[in-house]
Computed example of a mutant assay.
Amino acid sequence: MPFNDFIHALDAQLRQPLPGQEAHVKMASATRLRLKVQPNEKTRRSAVLILFYPHREHILLPLILRPKYDGVHAGQMAFPGGRYEKTDENLIRTALREAQEEIGIKASDVQILGKLTELFIPPSNFYVLPVVGKLAYKPDFYPDPREVEAVLEVNLNELLDETIVGFTELDVRGVTIEAPFYDIQGHKVWGATAMMISELLTVIRQ
């Protein structure tokens, strides 16, 4: 599908009721489903950017690999994004600012298409809002090495291939997690990012 036709269709689909939890649960870990942890007074807000752009007849979007560090999301695949700051006028601004800081895209060139369902992440106690946008061109990426080990450019057709879905056991800081995942370019994408991708794909396939 031509990029502009895809963006036009996605823009319309994002204006319809979102699948939300129904899509999230398909890629939720067994631990998450079992524990049913709820937000509390210390829960913070954050946002990520799901950014589509064209390249040689293909539709791409970036994922980032977090560096290994002493944190709950170390070494995991994610969308660029981060926590809400008081200087952000809203969570859309958070997603744009964080994406610019982390991977070097020009935030002012991004056209916002809509949002997916806000998702609670128990390990870090964040509510995260996935913001969907587009660039009219393929950007050059300038990853911040403190926050990004690598940027993966993912073809939308890769995500739409149902054979990339698997199930595994993961050792996360000494705890065994049973979780479904997407195998994307040799990386297991699981947890909140996989749940967001599940909702995104459900919206695209509507």
Rank of each mutant, 00 (worst) to 15 (best):
L200Y: 11
A192P: 14
I112Q: 00
G186K: 13
K42N: 12
H73M: 14
L61T: 15
A47Y: 07
F120Q: 03
Q38S: 08
P54A: 10
H58N: 06
L129F: 03
G114L: 04
P67Q: 12
D11H: 05
P123V: 04
N90R: 02
N155G: 02
I50L: 15
E98D: 12
N90M: 02
K68M: 14
L152S: 06
A194E: 05
I121T: 08
V132F: 04
N125Y: 04
E149P: 09
H24T: 04
H55W: 10
Y182K: 06
E57N: 12
L159E: 04
G82F: 09
H8S: 10
E149W: 00
P39C: 01
S198T: 12
P122G: 11
Y69F: 15
T117L: 07
L65G: 03
L61R: 03
D171C: 04
H24V: 04
A99W: 03
D171R: 14
T202L: 02
S124D: 10
G71H: 12
E199Y: 08
P2Q: 12
I103Y: 08
Q21E: 13
L65V: 14
I7E: 06
E101R: 13
R56E: 15
G186F: 13
R173S: 14
G166L: 08
W190P: 00
T193Y: 03
L96R: 09
R66D: 09
G75S: 06
D171T: 14
H73G: 03
A23L: 10
S124H: 01
L200N: 10
V72E: 15
M1R: 04
E153Q: 11
A47N: 10
I103V: 14
P130G: 04
L116Q: 09
R97K: 10
Q76A: 09
E85C: 04
P123T: 05
K26A: 12
A192F: 12
I121N: 13
Q100P: 03
E178Q: 14
L160S: 07
T31N: 13
S29Y: 06
L119S: 02
L33Q: 15
R45V: 01
F126D: 13
D161C: 09
G174L: 11
K138L: 08
G133K: 10
V48K: 03
Q100G: 15
I64L: 13
D144G: 08
